[in-house]
């Protein structure tokens, strides 16, 4: 295990910590909008984590998963916001 892998593992650990903190806000959040912004941050951090995983297993095909995941997260946030605004 060389130092390059160790640095990348530490980076992946920080992203996992970010996911955990956002999950705390997602569970606790006093209002629906708090939960939605926590979901948004989680999906963005998920994109970075999927890219990391595709680097660890060196398969470029996982990046397509990241693109589609980002697309679905964006559309989800827009739909929920429109619903809250009663303009859907």
């Amino acid at each position: 295990m060389d130092s390059l892998t160790i640095i990348l593992f530490v980076a992946a650990g920080f992203i996992l910590l970010a996911l955990l903190l956002a999950l705390y806000r997602f569970i606790k959040g006093p209002h629906t909008t708090d939960r939605v912004i926590a979901f948004d941050v989680m999906s963005i951090a998920g994109i970075a984590l999927i890219a990391m995983i595709s680097l660890f297993s060196s398969r470029i095909i996982y990046l397509d998963v990241a693109i589609v995941y980002g697309l679905l997260g964006f559309i989800g946030v827009i739909i929920i916001a429109k619903y809250l605004e009663r303009s859907l």
Binding site: F14, L20, R25, A48
Partner: peptide, 11 residues
Amino acid sequence: SIFLFLGALGL
């Protein structure tokens, strides 16, 4: 990744 962590901490 540190910036991502700080963003979640700010959340």
